[in-house]
Design a protein around this nucleic acid. Sequence first.
DNA 1: CGGAGTTTTGACAATATTCAAATATAGTGG
DNA 2: CCACTATATTTGAATATTGTCAAAACTCCG
Lengths: 250, 250
Amino acid sequence: MLQTTNFHHALEIANAVLLGSEQSCLQALFNKQPVERLAAGESLFFEGDAAKHLFEVVEGNLRIFRIISDGRRVITGFLQAGDIVGVSLKNHYLYSAEAITDTRVRRLSRKAFEAEVGNSPALRPEVFARLRDEMAAAQNQMVLLSCKNAEERVCSFLLKQLHRDPGHSRSNAIVELPMTRLDIADYLGLTIETVSRMMTKLANKGILVSAGRHCVRIVKYGMLVQLSGDDDEYDGDERGLLAYAGRQRQ
Amino acid sequence: MLQTTNFHHALEIANAVLLGSEQSCLQALFNKQPVERLAAGESLFFEGDAAKHLFEVVEGNLRIFRIISDGRRVITGFLQAGDIVGVSLKNHYLYSAEAITDTRVRRLSRKAFEAEVGNSPALRPEVFARLRDEMAAAQNQMVLLSCKNAEERVCSFLLKQLHRDPGHSRSNAIVELPMTRLDIADYLGLTIETVSRMMTKLANKGILVSAGRHCVRIVKYGMLVQLSGDDDEYDGDERGLLAYAGRQRQ
DNA sequence: CGGAGTTTTGACAATATTCAAATATAGTGG
DNA sequence: CCACTATATTTGAATATTGTCAAAACTCCG
């Protein structure tokens, strides 16, 4: 049996984003805020705008990205329900956020947020923990971009997406991919053609079965883990010497 | 004319590290701590160790890195005098730190640090600001690793090193490189051969003059900026709405 | 001066990109 | 419901960039 619980913890952390599947204190701050809607393709905010608000994603998916001088786009993360975005920002947003699917969010002013955190010391550890998780996620992405080849990147991505789904299990390994191949490519530092070829390759190896553009079924989970190059990845806190013991390869 | 001042600010922020050239409140916490010495090559702490301390670098240089499953090393940042490391960490260090040159550091227990920050609200904004800067630096590194080619990476690196030197100026553009070519390669996601070739190429173009293994003189600063691909980079706070009008990627 | 370790250079191979075309999918209006 | 269009994805062939392996040149220290 795989130590999926710990492994999972490391992977599920969204990049440049604060996650929380279970209702957290932080999320409670958003509860009374009205829900706003964004149609697919609409922007929540732009890189460089004054960062006046934080947002909680209630439903839907967003991409977080930067555009560099020559027009290339770098996606630094994806958001989904439960994620909070904006805690780590400077006075201006470091990136743009755009809805991938129809999305609902709640908005909290930065000022209100900072006041609440200032008042309630209980909130502070949570804020710090989320910042730390964000930082850990950024480090993982740097490792991916520094050393992994195309196949490893795509496998890592699929695992990350799988583990983000709270209802996932090894037997029911359906991965939803609301984003386009171009989004995936821009996230992994590859071209869409390379992403597509790797998906085909994984399908040919019998590791996954495609179920339409935005859905994939993982058939050989263990193989996927092996190919991701994160074999002996650990979660950064829970690990003692555990974790290696139970890890099997297929 | 390029907006080098702002550009500078974005670049000088060390990755995964807290910087501060002028004496800060945070740094004051370390003032009464005794100085410890590390010889070149010695480790300050290891990835996975219980993160019991924060450190201020008094003098010298360190590399911050992770080793991944197949033995490859990823350097996520370099430290120099004035940097503080440990604020953003979880309970266990996310990476190892190793002295590049002979180094002196001051140590502060995590517990003491957290107590001080808890007591003194004035310290908190500084801690947050440093975390935000760290995050911004991580984002910049992701952009570099996602989209930049070998030449752009090396140029970006040289500029970053140049701007880290408090005494730098455009006319006196001497860049110290205390780290080895392998360190640079592992930081930029390249091989030492590629780094070396790019340095040679830049020297042939008359952009820089090599002055021994660990020192380079920048002759054509503007060219270097152009080649870095960070042309219209901005500092993350000062910029207005420039740049995005016609951006749309297909 | 010698020698270990580092860096540079060269030749070749591997991997991912580019460009082009074919195919699949989703959305729209009849 | 179907055909049609626009868009997204896949596939193929050629190219480019970077990596690998091997050897030469250079530096730094003792």
